[in-house]
Design a binder for these strands. Structure first.
Length: 521
RNA sequence: GGGCGCGUAGCUCAAUUGGCAGAGCAACUGACUCUUAAUCAGUAGGUUGAAGGUUCGAUUCCUUCCGCGCUCACCA
């Protein structure tokens, strides 16, 4: 396109529409007008494929240490990114392009890029996505930059970006419009990269030990494997109600029966409960099952897994959370009864004999069985004090319908939970594999259900049938990925580690209507 | 669901005892060919979350509602 024509188009658009714009003062309208200016210059407001030579992080990794002299002979690059800052000075100027969380400065000089590309540079808005071609150099102040010789437009921003040095702080917008959070807050980006590293580390470690990854039903005709209320949905053709799973446990153990002796699944569970800083209705669990081991074996395995995950995610075994230094290098271990004695607050610390005495336990609690009383005391007294990563083992049978009894103490089961930062992050046990005992446990749960306990298990007869074919002795464990991610990233709320946490739907946005009204004007 | 707190320009935040709704950034116009929170001159931008009420007068006080956060209960 001849330069004169382009310039003319630019000027005409300005003079004819400027008055309307200033009267309306609508950013959208300004931006849509700018799209027409871009098109008049022969640019596409939403470009297509762009061949780049480097990503911005690649350039920074390769050339950050190079001096001006070492950038000679010229290093030619083609890069793309989102415009993060613009500093215009008449017939030249700078901008920072942001890509994959890192930024690189470009220098655009009219003499170097020509009239048309310089007109494009002058029209850029913060948030536009552009491609640039040129060579690397260092500015007078020493910043590695691209001396641009050609500029290309790849995508237009119609809405204004978050403010540049405070970033985006409104938590509601950060959760609802996570894309803005990811653009504006490097810390948020880092959290989700760390989350991905945590999951990758678990996968790598489990694969290397011969575990295979499987997917089991999310929609289940019977829900089980945990104590929780489910979400209900409906399948039209079969005309049946289905439940979103509260846990994959019963399916994974069917697979162990079937000879998949080491299986794991990393996926969502859904529990129809309240929301809090530690609870989202859908959350991600790792569950794994290993035949021929028991909860003692899993304690050792868990310690290794968590230690390595901490290293893979953060570079070391120590992390700081809420001002406390947590060490994943080793997990402390207490039985539940030991923990009640050890973490007792104030006077009247019980003896070991007392925490084993049903009469003493019942006297401390409103619960009707010694086991439930012990659990209640533990939760009230101990849980919040378990800051260091800690294993608590040997749980009362009443609260554990799927765990195997301790042979020497049938009122307790071979179960442990992992705590850190006062939160439960893991739950594991020696799986109950006696179908007759499992049938009795389900019937106990049914009785609790009839007394009004909505969270008690239903009878899963196919599961009993599976066990009746024989399940090898097996250890199984679940680890809450969201909470572990909170701890390893220093997040206060589970919503900070879930990309799109559940929120109430927002009201009408009104953008579609505004765009419709502005179309073709 | 209960309790406490917050909601002001696109973003981050002010506004004295109830007395003319403001600033910075972003936007718009102009100047500027090595800036980096660029600078300089100017312009525009508001149903103060919504609806009622008290008052001569409400961002401010009261009521209800909406949204978010914290917390308690339930849960992992």
């Amino acid at each position: 396109m001849p330069l004169g024509a382009a310039g003319e188009a630019f000027i005409i658009t300005n003079s004819s529409e400027e008055i309307d714009l200033s009267l309306e003062d609508d950013l959208l309208e300004q931006r849509l007008a700018r799209i027409r200016e871009l098109e008049a210059l022969g640019y596409r407001p939403y470009g297509n494929r762009f061949e780049f030579t480097h990503t911005i992080p690649e350039i920074l990794a390769q050339y950050s240490s190079k001096t001006a002299e070492e950038l000679n002979p010229q290093v030619r690059v083609r890069i793309a990114g989102r415009v993060q800052t613009i500093r215009r000075m008449g017939k030249a100027g700078f901008a920072h392009l942001l890509q994959n969380g890192e930024r690189l400065q470009i220098y655009v000089k009219k003499d170097a890029v020509g009239e048309r590309d310089f007109a494009l540079y002058q029209m850029l808005d913060l948030g536009d996505i552009v491609g640039a071609e040129g060579y690397l150099f260092r500015t007078r102040t020493g910043e590695l930059s691209v001396h641009v010789e050609h500029l290309e437009h790849l995508a237009k921003t119609l809405l204004s970006m978050p403010e540049k040095w405070h970033g985006l702080e409104d938590v509601e917008i950060r959760y609802r419009q996570r894309y803005l959070d990811l653009i504006a807050n490097p810390e948020s980006r880092r959290v989700f990269l760390t989350r991905a590293k945590i999951i990758a580390s678990f996968r790598r470690q489990l694969e290397s030990r011969g575990f295979i990854e499987v997917e089991t039903p999310m929609m289940q005709p019977l829900y089980g494997g945990a104590a929780a209320r489910p979400f209900t949905t409906h399948h039209n053709t079969l005309d049946i109600d289905l439940y979103l799973r509260i846990a994959p446990e019963l399916y994974l153990k069917r697979l162990v029966v079937g000879g998949l002796e080491r299986v794991y699944e990393i996926n969502r569970n859904f529990r129809n409960e309240g929301l809090s800083t530690q609870h989202n209705p859908e959350f991600t669990m790792l569950e794994f099952y290993q035949a021929y081991t028991d909860y003692r074996g899993l304690m050792d395995f868990s310690s290794e897994l968590l230690r390595q995950v901490a290293i893979d995610a953060t570079g070391g075994t120590e992390v700081e959370y809420e001002g406390c230094k947590l060490d994943f290098g080793r997990l402390e271990r207490y039985s539940m009864r030991e923990a009640v004695v050890a973490f007792w607050k104030g006077g009247g610390r019980p003896t070991h004999e007392q925490v084993c005495d049903p009469q003493w336990l019942l006297a401390q609690s409103s619960k009707s069985t010694p086991g439930e009383a012990l659990t209640e005391i533990f939760e009230n007294v101990v849980e919040e004090q378990l800051i260091q990563p800690t294993i608590i083992y040997d749980y009362p049978v009443e609260t554990s319908p799927l765990s195997k009894n301790k042979p020497e103490d049938p009122a307790f089961v071979e179960r442990f939970e992992i705590y850190a930062a006062g939160m439960e992050i893991g739950n594991a046990y020696t799986e109950l594999n006696d179908p007759q005992e499992q049938r009795r446990r389900f019937e106990m749960q049914l009785a609790m259900r009839q007394r009004g306990d909505e969270e008690a298990h239903q009878m899963d007869e196919d599961y009993v049938r599976a066990l009746s074919y024989g399940m090898p002795p097996t250890g199984g464990e679940g680890i809450g990925i969201d909470r572990l991610t909170m701890i390893l990233t220093g997040a206060r709320s589970i919503r900070d580690v879930i990309l799109f946490p559940l929120l109430r739907p927002e009201g009408p946005i009104g953008l579609a209507e505004r765009l419709r009204n502005l179309e073709g004007r």
